[in-house]
Design a protein around this nucleic acid. Structure first.
Lengths: 229, 229
DNA sequence: TCGAAAAATAAGTATAGACATAATGCGGCA
DNA sequence: TGCCGCATTATGTCTATACTTATTTTTCGA
């Protein structure tokens, strides 16, 4: 591999040094200019490689402070959040959707807090069931800031999930993944036993500092969320 | 904001056009050279901005094919996979660790498949409990390729989780998140009711094409895995 | 001795120019 | 008609240089 020095090759070599402890955990590595000289490439190439390693958690960089190998590595995994219809169709199953409820209501405290909303602003509450091959797949329970989706936006044919992803600008938010037992209502809607272990996701989304929506997605038993790195 | 054109400002403007549908879903956007001319900056600056948007799922780029806005956006979330000790300590709790079993055994079929192992190679099976403030936090059930961690590596004081992350080079693998009911054995170890809904992660890791380890982490009830974007 | 100002340092970023690479599509040949 | 290969094109990347910014270290004065 003697040809042109690519940023990938620099990254590979840096990774090798990290793994062989030639660059030990907690230690500082040479600066970009020195590495560029050593590898016989431009500093920008080294920069790109080290920046990439930093976003993956293999290195920590600070201006003037230099670049160091973290003592306790924190690997970063990326995974894709598709809309539910795509998730179902990607499994080769037939997707269907059923709107169960859609009304204005005062949100529970937990939702108010998560969205950092003042007072008792009523929010739009949407409850809908996503189906795969006519079996319950996922229950969507969502609170929407009516500023972003007024009553003229109907969720009877397109899910709120899909409408929001397609129509709004997201700039931040949080996720939580957890397991929850099926209560009577969940068991009925998802057609499973009471107490069944269900995979669930809480998500909040903001546009700048404006709260858009908080949602709980509860999946039917057996659902696995997968990703590769 | 009239000063120098930064790649962040180009990204912000591009994102605005995507959200306002000035660049509609499914449509192709102008090429880098044209945008650079329009914004009065170098093509590299535009490249950096669009590349960043592509990794976040807002754009799709193909050589020669140009750059287009995806019809069905797939948002990408990154989250951090810390070692369990860090996870516990990050919550301000006292971490403890107990090794329950460590022996060579033939792996179950599911593990053999996940690691793409031929024949009936015996693997090292490690079962350990992670504790937070002396309460069960997470059960680790792991199968390790003995090539990477022979018997001289002891897991009685440091967890396999931590040893592997610190000592081995990872180059790929997969994750699956799901909910599972506590069976008798899980209920006993995690000190919860039988049938309780537990959050679990299956993970496989490889070094190039070499299988390293497959692990199931099953968390005590109430665990939430959180991240922000 | 303490603290504030100045210098030094390393990463972050912008630029212009060049070449590489992967698709695409078109034209020509069988 | 059908297929191969070449020209075209947009992104991908490297280089060399310059300037910016955050942060640490040094220096110098009170």
């Amino acid at each position: 591999m003697d040809g042109p020095v690519t940023w990938q090759s620099v990254r590979a070599e840096a990774l090798r040094r990290i793994h062989t402890r030639e660059w030990p955990p907690g230690g500082q590595i040479p600066n970009e200019a020195d590495l560029a000289a050593e590898f016989g490439c431009a500093r920008a190439t080294v920069n790109r490689a080290l920046r990439d390693l930093a976003t993956s958690g293999y290195l920590e960089r600070r201006r003037k402070g230099g670049t160091r190998v973290p003592l306790t590595p924190v690997r970063k995994a990326t995974f894709e959040i598709a809309i539910i219809r795509q998730d179902v169709e990607g499994r080769g199953q037939h997707y269907d959707y059923r709107l169960l409820a859609d009304r204005l209501a005062p949100p529970p405290l937990a939702v108010r807090d998560a969205l950092r909303l003042p007072g008792a602003t009523p929010l739009r509450m949407v409850r809908a069931l996503h189906l795969a091959d006519d079996a319950p797949f996922c229950l969507e329970e969502r609170w929407i800031n009516p500023t972003f989706a007024g009553p003229e936006v109907r969720f009877d044919t397109i899910s709120a999930n899909e409408w929001l992803v397609r129509n709004l600008a997201f700039s931040g938010g949080g996720f939580a993944f957890y397991a929850t037992p099926a209560d009577a209502s969940l068991a009925e809607v998802l057609m499973c036993d009471r107490g069944a272990a269900l995979f669930a996701i809480d998500r909040t989304t903001f546009s700048d500092a404006e709260p858009i929506t908080a949602v709980t997605l509860t999946y039917a038993p057996g659902y696995r969320m997968v990703t590769r790195i």
